[in-house]
């Protein structure tokens, strides 16, 4: 059963090797003639404005939090979908109730304008 995950391991190793090869080759072969302009952080071709470490709006945090909660909701759908056929109607009703309760939460954040950036 674990053999099924061998391609994942191979993929992981190939990605690791590729990353190391690209970084290693460019460090080894690349010509380094640094100048202040080259060493400056790239910001869409214009001179950098200020520091990247500014305080961010709480709205990002709210969206992140809501993302996690609905992410957890979706995570429950995977095992449900796999056994859906053998569960028949009770399985459908279980998930219907689950989604219905969470839909109330979705309507709540919609009504409160939590997804509305300007408010």
């Amino acid at each position: 059963m674990l053999e099924a995950y061998l391609p994942v391991l191979v993929h992981f190793l190939v990605v690791l090797a590729l990353g190391l090869i690209i970084l290693g080759l460019s460090a080894w072969v690349g010509v380094k003639r640094p100048s202040p302009e080259k060493l400056a952080p790239y910001e869409c071709g214009m001179p950098p404005v200020g520091d990247a470490r500014e305080r961010f709006s709480i709205s990002f945090y709210l969206v992140g939090m809501l993302f996690i909660l609905f992410d957890v909701e979706v995570a429950f759908l995977f095992p449900w979908a796999v056994v859906y056929k053998s569960l028949k109607w009770p399985g459908f009703l279980e998930m219907f109730l689950y989604i219905a309760i969470l839909l109330a939460g979705y309507l709540y954040i919609w009504k409160k304008g939590a997804l509305d950036w300007s408010r």
């Binding site: 709480i58 945090y61 939090m65 809501l66 309760i101 939460g105 709540y108 954040i109 409160k112 939590a114």
Partner: peptide, 14 residues
């Protein structure tokens, strides 16, 4: 999850 959704909105919304 529903309670957590409401909690997040109440805490983070101005």
């Amino acid at each position: 999850i529903l309670v957590a959704v409401m909690g997040a909105v109440v805490l983070a919304k101005k």
